[in-house]
Every structure is written in C-alpha cells, then in structure tokens.
C-alpha cells in the first residue's frame, strides 16, 4: 500500500469520527503543516513567534475537524496528494494570519495608496491577444517578462526542461510577431532570461 492509499483510508476514518485515525493523521502530516507555516511566517514577518506557529498548526487541524469535517471532506483525492493539499490549506491559514497582523499595522495612507495602484504589481500590464498563443506559452512570457524569472527558474517551477522553456518562448514570440504583422524579423527571439546556454 502506498502512502496515498493509506491516507485515503485514514481520511475516510477521520470523517467517520474515528479518534485513532485523527491521531494518525496528525502524526503523518504535522511535519508538512509545521514546515509550511514556519516558512511562510519567516518570509513575511520580521520575527517568528513559536506560539504563533503552534496556534496556526492547531488551527489547521481544527479547521479540518470542525463543521463535521466539511473542509476535510472537500479534499479531492483524485486531484492531488494529501500532503500538497494540506500544504496549500496551512499556507492559506498562515497568510490569513499575517494579513490580519499587517492590516492592523498598516497606516491608512498606505491602504489608500494601494487602492489607487489598481493592480497587484502596480505596473501597466501588456495585454496578450487570446488564442494567439497557448496558455503555457502565455504563462512562460509572464514568468519571464513580468516576474523577471530566468529560464532555469521558470523550468524548475513548471517541472520541465530548460530547452522546453526556450522553445515555448521562441514559438510564443514568433506567433506574436506574426499576429502583429511583424514577420519573422531578424529571428530576435532568443530568450532574454537565458543566462545558461545549452
């Protein structure tokens, strides 16, 4: 039996109200939850308080438990591993916690300013015509040009080879040039984020 099958059984037993199953679930996933919370708090707060980490850990499992396990029941085992799902859930709770702290400490003028910024990055977004390039090509362009990732990072995030990113980039630029009637140009579609050749 794989860890996934075991988890499926345990999740089912937890939903049925089995205390032993809950204890096993906590033992199996406390490490994943703890890691997610500590890393998120370390990233966004100057000082990480161990009590806060503990509280958010408690709250993550409580969240799965309360309301007749409605959150736990919402887990779709066909879509993801439980460890990934619970990582997303615990990170959500950690972010929620940080937001509350930040909202409390943010001067109102900053909040007003950020409303006027309009966007998340505060930068004018170029619009990419729909259906000209594939979703993945579009995403790669955003990651490289809007977020400043290099080919290596983009490849790692999308779990593909660097060569795949180069070719997605190349094809996207080519299609966009054609769309805007710019022709093939001087084949100037080498990727600006390409720091590593080959």
């Amino acid at each position: 039996m794989t860890k996934n099958n075991v988890t499926e059984e345990i999740v089912k037993d937890c939903i049925d109200g089995n205390d032993v199953a809950w204890a096993i679930l906590v033992d199996m996933y406390i490490g994943v939850v703890y890691k997610a919370i500590v890393l998120v708090l370390n990233k966004y707060l100057d000082h990480t308080d161990e009590h806060d980490v503990n509280d958010i850990c408690q709250n993550t499992f409580l969240k799965l438990f309360i309301n007749n396990c409605s959150v736990l029941k919402s887990y779709d085992q066909n879509k993801s591993k439980f460890s990934t799902w619970i990582t997303v859930v615990s990170r959500n709770l950690a972010i929620d916690y940080i937001r509350k702290i930040k909202e409390k400490n943010t001067p109102i003028s900053d909040i007003v300013d950020s409303l006027h910024m309009g966007g998340v990055t505060g930068r004018e977004k170029i619009s990419v015509p729909e259906d000209v390039i594939s979703p993945r090509q579009h995403l790669v362009l955003r990651m490289i040009y809007d977020d400043g990732l290099d080919v290596e990072e983009t490849a790692r995030f999308l779990s593909v080879k660097r060569q795949t990113i180069r070719s997605l980039h190349h094809r996207a630029i080519k299609k966009l040039r054609e769309h805007y009637g710019l022709g093939a140009g001087q084949e100037k579609s080498s990727c600006p984020a390409d720091t590593t050749q080959s």
Binding site: W22, V26, D52, I56, F61, F65, L93, Y97
Partner: peptide, 21 residues
C-alpha cells in the same frame, strides 16, 4: 497538543477560536 485539542473539541464551528488577531 494538536491531538489533545481535537479530542476536547466537539467538532462544532468555532470561528477564529485559535487565531489571535
């Protein structure tokens, strides 16, 4: 402590119970 917390809980909704604001 997580297990104990769950055991003493009746499963009813307690919004924001643990998160201090």
């Amino acid at each position: 402590s997580v297990k104990n917390n769950l055991q003493t809980h009746d499963g009813a909704p307690t919004p924001g119970r643990k998160i201090k604001i």
